[in-house]
Design a protein around this nucleic acid. Sequence first.
DNA 1: CATGAATGAGCGTTCATTCAT
DNA 2: CATGAATGAACGCTCATTCAT
Lengths: 201, 201, 201, 201
Amino acid sequence: MNANKRKQIMDAAESLFSSRRFHEITVEEIARKAGVGKGTIYRYFQDKDALFFEVVASGYDQLYAVIEEVAESGEDFKRMLLRVSERISEFHRRRLQWIQMGHGDGKRLFGAHGKWRNLWTARFARLVEAVSAILVRGRDQGLLRTDVEVEVLSLFFLSLLRARGLAAHRLGGRRVKRELLVDFFCHGACACAVGNREESR
Amino acid sequence: MNANKRKQIMDAAESLFSSRRFHEITVEEIARKAGVGKGTIYRYFQDKDALFFEVVASGYDQLYAVIEEVAESGEDFKRMLLRVSERISEFHRRRLQWIQMGHGDGKRLFGAHGKWRNLWTARFARLVEAVSAILVRGRDQGLLRTDVEVEVLSLFFLSLLRARGLAAHRLGGRRVKRELLVDFFCHGACACAVGNREESR
Amino acid sequence: MNANKRKQIMDAAESLFSSRRFHEITVEEIARKAGVGKGTIYRYFQDKDALFFEVVASGYDQLYAVIEEVAESGEDFKRMLLRVSERISEFHRRRLQWIQMGHGDGKRLFGAHGKWRNLWTARFARLVEAVSAILVRGRDQGLLRTDVEVEVLSLFFLSLLRARGLAAHRLGGRRVKRELLVDFFCHGACACAVGNREESR
Amino acid sequence: MNANKRKQIMDAAESLFSSRRFHEITVEEIARKAGVGKGTIYRYFQDKDALFFEVVASGYDQLYAVIEEVAESGEDFKRMLLRVSERISEFHRRRLQWIQMGHGDGKRLFGAHGKWRNLWTARFARLVEAVSAILVRGRDQGLLRTDVEVEVLSLFFLSLLRARGLAAHRLGGRRVKRELLVDFFCHGACACAVGNREESR
DNA sequence: CATGAATGAGCGTTCATTCAT
DNA sequence: CATGAATGAACGCTCATTCAT
């Protein structure tokens, strides 16, 4: 089991999955792109579905690792949000396809296959929790509103980051500044809030 | 061209597409569920891809109609946001699958097929603009921050609504109240903002 | 049973069958070209096969009629050959497709379908016999060699005519003169025979 | 690419194509008869059309080879004609279906498909030229009439051979003797010519 | 271990045929 | 009679998966 070969395959698969639909990509194509034989793929992955799942899951895992790293840094709450959005943005940039691929929900992807579904839901929940861990810190410092659950705020935060990534495409590459995004997350869209920003810093 | 039959097919397709992946659903299955012959589908849609596209597009169209309706009501800005989130939530509830299906991005879905891609991008842009039209009103009244483009705010707003819909699943059905969501959109996550909420009303 | 409509259909079918293969032509296309409804075709022909057969058969019938007419004219033997080749050529020219369509053998076309096969074979045999009837006259006058059966000579004669039609395509439209063809049929390819042509006239 | 398997498939296809129409034979049937999997056929041939074309083309190629071989033997002109008709007859007997299949013209078969059409026309032209090469020799020796182009004479010769093959069926298996056919080709159908045969030998 | 030729289940699609209007 | 919408049997073709080398 050559771990390197495994990675080659996943990388090839990821880059292909990101621009075409699952059923439009053949295993042969993945093998070709990975520079391995078609049969080889089946030595590393049970089947095409498993390969797909692992690719997506690994994306989540990397995001998780990134967030976790920040969460454990013990920095100032606001700074952590900035750092997280920085790292996630970076991730989105490097693995741009991934925003499109992961697309926030596996129910449709894995819903029919209980087996994958649970693994998938767990991954996503883990991601949300990692962000929650950071937000909890802010809440404990009295910085966060308490009328919305932290998990929901986490989900919102991740959604905004995702939207920002998408916007980069839609709006012709102009990307909202990270600081602005975090600021939006903290103070919202209303003008009245803007004036208060100084205080909240 | 019996318009009714066309709808039957689209409805059947929508409900199937929402819980399984495109390539896991057979045209025959759609036909069966729609109560029509397999061949009939090809009288109303060029191919499976076209059917899929039309289903997704019609979802966007309905969302658009809903938002547009609110936008034209000429109500108070804040109330319009509430109404929009109300209507979109309702839409998500009724066509729950759709949050999962639409999933915010068609690049992967239609990217490879220039033909669909443009149609798709246009639909989404239209949606964002419909929301923008509402936000612009708020901006003109000096209610919105001006350091973030309205289109971006629109995208954020839609993202939050989508996240809320997803959260309803993830977090076991508990759904964030609409008022809270709008409030979050307006004032953000920070505690400091909460105090200001009164003013902004 | 509008005989005119029947003819419309057959004409449409003939022109289509001649340039594409049987299975590449749809009944709908025939109907469209004939300017009738699809269902109408089934009022005049049992099925697509029957239509095809009738089209081909009618070609043979027309050829037969043409030859028969000449045969009954009671003219000079040589002149009859000329007249026959004239009429068949004309037929080939007008229904050019037909040389390609009829292609001399129905075994492959109708072989699997006993029903058609017999009808077909009979038609072709009738054609050969019609020519034979003319040749017999020549034989009785001592003009024809007797070491080859008249039927075979008929077949040869028809083959040469067909080849001539084909040649018109292959050799870029230049068509062997009718007189030359009949002369070839009578005296063959050898130079020695040429000198004798005068006598044999 | 196992060349043997390729041949298996072509042989199976040939025998099937010869007794039923193209569209009546399923790829699966060919596969079954060839003793290979259905998918295998598509490893060796682009599609059903390509397979069909190759089968027909290979028939022409073999005929060509046979004629070429005789042409290069440098024998006496008359003998060559005999040999050619001998070899072609043999070919027809062995691959009886082929007379029916090849049927002299590919326009209808391949006409709609420019790609095949050219290849096809070329094959046939090559066949005619191979025969022409032999006839030219006769012409140069002053044995052939010069008022008909050699290519046309070639076409006539091939047509007669084909007719003879067909006659074998039509006329219940009695086959015109080769010598008689060549004699007919040389001296035609007229009695007067018969008398001259001695001279021309 | 690695490979890719072989396979056949399974799918999208077509189209001859029917039948309600 | 004429029509064409509806149908589903049937086919070509693909491609995930296997397995002999």
